[in-house]
Design a protein around this nucleic acid. Structure first.
Lengths: 250, 250
DNA sequence: TAGTGGTCTAGACCACCGT
DNA sequence: CGGTGGTCTAGACCACTAT
């Protein structure tokens, strides 16, 4: 009976509630959800609104459905879209999860040949390196080894060790957000250090992402080696071969 | 006041009409469309339905809008190439390597629920499944388990077991290339079957890519579970912060 | 056949834009 | 201020699935 006129608060609230319930196991993988009508009534929204939330969860592969049957919860692999460029913290919050960060080390240094190449610096230019363990709702899911160019060192070094988002600080201080990034994605076994930081056995399969990111104004921002616990997270990529056609199903 | 219960005929009809009008220059680039209410009245649908059509055109970059103002037609030449979509064979050759393929099995079957969903089929519709080991310069680097919709079965079954590229055959026979794909990327340990096919020890880290691909004309083409030997291959993805999606965050 | 999801409708309130 | 898009509601009919 009532609209809001701004962003989509009801929808977002419902999405968050469902994410939370799935994460907490209220709807175990493979089990059926209550009917749309029942769920809508319980959450105090119209069926249409509830439905848009379900469709979002479906596009994130948390739910599936078949005509005439109930919605089914899926194995909760979190999927991070790479095409839409967002920081870890932004991505986590969009899923209704709380991102955390713990800085393991943070120190100044000189660029290696590789770092210089990726960040557009000269070898031995000043850089700042940090190692962070990042988590979702308190559980560690990835370890991140990042190198920043020297001009960011002051901003980075000033951050508290549990800052959930470095991007937010950079945005606040320099007024520029992420522009674009290149990712190279591998699989690898957990090294001894990784296994200790992530609290998993050695040689467990990890998803390794080497990332070179630039700010919206084109300046190189970071070069990072991220290692995710294998099953806990999926990267999602949508790619197209250009060319727009007219007959668009979907 | 009336629903249909089947696919979405009204919505599709409206989308087609708008595509045609844009193509015919009824709404020149930069000009404003009539208001949603007026357009809905003219086309004989509810505003909600018209709106879903506009959102689809927006996601295809044909239209943009601002709050409180009209929808604006866009120049339809905007290439949105984010990630380049290429087949394994195309990719290998671009690296100067020789792609190879060995078909391990190839047989007809009926779609599982998951396959039906990914390929836009109904459960138990005819599909064709193949398992292939693919290599670079003679060394196996990945195993590929692919499901094709029934209408492709003849083309697929006719291929020689060492065909380096299925896409090339489809392109030759049906005259359509790859259009669009979605990937979900994980890390996992090699299962027993994988280790045998790839000639690596069990539990070696593999890069697992679940891929749903469509042809340029929008028809679902394949659903595939690809597993790459961890260190041998990296996926490379370039992403930018631009990206506008339908209505929802995705 | 009863119940579910898939689609569509008609109407409402709100925030925002131009005047 | 009136008009526009953005969001939400309540209710309807249909095709499909399960039993």
């Amino acid at each position: 009976m009532e609209g809001t006129g701004s962003s989509a608060p009801r929808l977002l609230a419902v999405v968050r509630i469902l994410h939370r319930r799935l994460a907490e196991g209220a709807y175990p993988a493979g089990s059926a959800l209550p009917s749309e009508s029942a769920l809508a009534r319980e959450l105090g929204v119209a069926r249409g609104t509830l439905r848009r939330a379900l469709e979002q969860l479906e596009s994130e592969h948390f739910l599936v459905c078949q005509r005439g049957s109930h919605w089914i919860a899926q194995e909760p692999t979190r999927s991070q879209s790479v095409s839409v460029l967002r920081s870890f913290a932004q991505w986590a919050r969009s899923l209704g999860l709380e991102p955390s960060g713990r800085t393991v080390s943070s120190r100044a240094g000189r660029a290696s040949a590789q770092e210089a190449r990726e960040l557009g610096l000269r070898r031995a230019d000043r850089v700042h390196r940090i190692v962070r363990v990042r988590g979702l709702d308190g559980r560690p899911v990835m370890v991140e080894r990042t190198t920043f160019p020297g001009w960011l060192a002051v901003t980075i070094a000033a951050l508290p060790p549990d800052a959930p988002s470095i991007m937010a600080a950079v945005l606040a201080e320099h007024g520029v957000g992420l522009g674009h990034a290149e990712h190279r994605i591998f699989a690898m076994g957990a090294a001894t250090v990784d296994s200790r930081l992530l609290q998993v056995p050695r040689s467990v399969p990890l998803l390794r992402v080497l990332r070179t990111a630039r700010l919206a104004d084109g300046r190189p921002f970071e070069y990072s080696d991220d290692r995710y616990i294998g099953g806990s997270i999926a990267l999602s990529v949508v790619s197209s071969a250009a060319a727009v056609e007219t007959g668009m199903p979907r």
